[in-house]
Structures are given as C-alpha cells and as structure tokens.
C-alpha cells in the first residue's frame, strides 16, 4: 500500500543555515506519527513543506500520492490541518465557523463537532477571539473531526494547553483515529502524554533526523544504563552506546541494544561491567536520552 506521506531527500536552508539535508521518511495509512524535536529544529518547517506553504531548497514530498507543490482540491479536502497555536478565524463564533467550513466539504459531519462543543463552556454566540487557548484547541479539533479527513496534520497541538485540555485532546484524537483508521502526522515539543498516542516516533535534531521507529520499539529497547563509578571512555559515531554523562558516583549512558551487547562494547574497552544495570524509560526520558538536555 502506498504511503500517505512520503518525503524524499528534503534539503532546506534558511539563508545559509542548514535545517536538514536529505531528509527521508514516510507514513503509512492508519498510523499516528509524532515528529518530536526541540524548539527550532524545523518541525513547523516540515509541516509547511508538506502542505506546500514552503518551497524547500530541494527534494519532494507526496501527500496521498500527490506532489505537495500542487495539491489538488480533492487532496486538500482529505487533509485536516491544525496550525500552530490552534489558529482559527477568530472573528467567527462557533455556529458561524461551522457554517462556513461545512460549505467546503462534501462529507461534512456536524455531530463530532457539536459533541465536542457541548463539552466546552462557551455560548454559541461567543467569538473565538474571546476564548481561552484550550477552548480554541477544541474548536479547531472539532472542525477537523467534522471535516472527516483521511490525513490529519497537527502542528504543535499541545502548545499552550493545560494538562486537562491536553489529555482531552489526546484521548479524543486517539479514540477517533482508532475507530476510523485515519492517519495522523503531528509535531510536538512536549513529549508527555505522547506515548499513549503515537505509533511511530520521529525525533528531529538540529540539522538531521535522529531516529524514526515505532514507539513501542523505543519504549521496549531504549534503555538507560548505569555504571557505579565515574568511568571515562571515548564514543565512536556508530557506537551502541550513546550520550554518556558523568556523575561523581556513577556514569550514565543510553543504548538501543540489549545488555549483553552493551557489555561487549564496554569490555572491548576493558571496562569492568560488574556494576552495570539498566532501567526502562518513558518516551520523554528516551527523548532526552537521545537529544541531550541542551
């Protein structure tokens, strides 16, 4: 089956600053892919490129099999877009905005929108500009759900949401996507709650894609290892060991590989592995393990 999103060899610069070189990835139908990265790693840039709002220096993306530089109207109606900050036309009230969007989509489904709106403590005549960020996020989500798109693109949806709204958003989205076999591409710089939601994780660092793996694979295999001594050693670029941090009483590092392979790697450097222990990680820990704290 063809991928819903396919990006090949995307290279982009802002001025002379390289954002990424030869970025490749694809998303298959029914998957929820999370693009995680710190601020300024180019998450929104990818969203912009995907939707044809940015001309990349080189490379191409295909959305539902179509070139992103000239998306057809049909394709656009199959893509639900949530802009950073849950931006919506703020001069509308919730009745007006539903009326406006419904005219553009053949398969407009009002029920999920009104379901969500009924949960909000807003009047029908309240303008969106007077709503809180959380309320706005629900309006934006409701509109996307009513649009019933095949692909949902959500840019930094967790930004500005308090935990309640964030959980509400995640739960609602998860339930909806699982029930309808939708594909989701989302970005976030807040990793909390994300492991419940995303099937695949892409982690972006400055200038490159660090990793693209199924989320469960990361949670199952990516471990933090501890040695109870401050042991100094050098890392190779393709080492099984990553992100070594030294403390007064111990040394920490991360690895995708199982215990015995890590031991081998240490022993090859003649390091005593008797005190080696590991612990499982949350996605957030894993993210920090991969990208570092800075």
């Amino acid at each position: 089956m063809a991928a819903i999103i396919e990006c090949n060899n995307i290279t982009h610069y802002y001025g002379n600053r390289l954002i990424y070189k030869d970025l490749n990835f694809s998303v298959e139908r029914g998957k929820i892919l999370g693009l995680l990265g710190k601020n300024g790693t180019g998450k929104t840039t990818i969203i912009n490129i995907l939707n044809g709002y940015l001309k990349p220096y080189s490379g191409e993306c295909r959305l539902l099999g179509e070139d992103m530089r000239s998306l057809s109207i049909e394709t656009k109606s199959k893509v639900g877009l949530l802009l950073e900050g849950h931006v919506q036309h703020s001069y509308f009230n919730i009745v007006q905005i539903e009326k406006f969007y419904s005219r553009f989509f053949k398969d407009w489904k009002s029920e999920p929108y009104w379901d969500l709106m009924d949960k909000l403590k807003v009047t029908r005549k309240q303008k969106i500009s007077t709503m809180s960020c959380g309320q706005r996020s629900q309006v934006a989500l409701g509109l996307i759900l009513a649009q019933d798109p095949e692909l949902l693109i959500l840019d930094d949806f967790s930004m500005g949401l308090d935990p309640g709204y964030r959980r509400l958003f995640v739960d609602y989205l998860k339930e909806y996507v699982t029930a309808t076999n939708k594909t989701v591409f989302l970005t976030s710089h807040i990793i909390q709650d994300m492991e419940h939601l995303i099937d695949e994780t892409m982690i972006l660092d400055y200038g490159k894609l660090l990793l693209h793996k199924p989320t469960h694979e990361i949670l199952d295999n990516f471990k933090r290892y501890k040695l109870s001594d401050d042991v100094r050693f050098k890392l190779d670029s393709d080492d099984v060991i990553q992100n070594v941090e030294h403390f007064k009483t111990h040394t920490e590092f991360y690895s995708f590989d199982p215990m015995d392979k890590v031991k081998q790697a240490l022993q090859s450097r003649s390091i005593d592995t008797q005190t080696l222990v590991y612990e499982s990680l949350t996605l957030e820990d894993a993210f920090i393990g991969l990208t570092g704290k800075y």
Binding site: Y53, I73, K76, L81, L83
Partner: peptide, 17 residues
C-alpha cells in the same frame, strides 16, 4: 486578521482553487 499568526494558510488550505 488573515495575516495574524499566518491564518491565511487556513484560507489557502480550503478545498477551493
């Protein structure tokens, strides 16, 4: 209002030429 937070993107994303 269309340029605030680049919401013109919403307008251009509509399934309409």
């Amino acid at each position: 209002p269309e340029m605030q937070k680049k919401s013109l993107k919403l307008t251009l994303h509509l399934p309409h030429p």
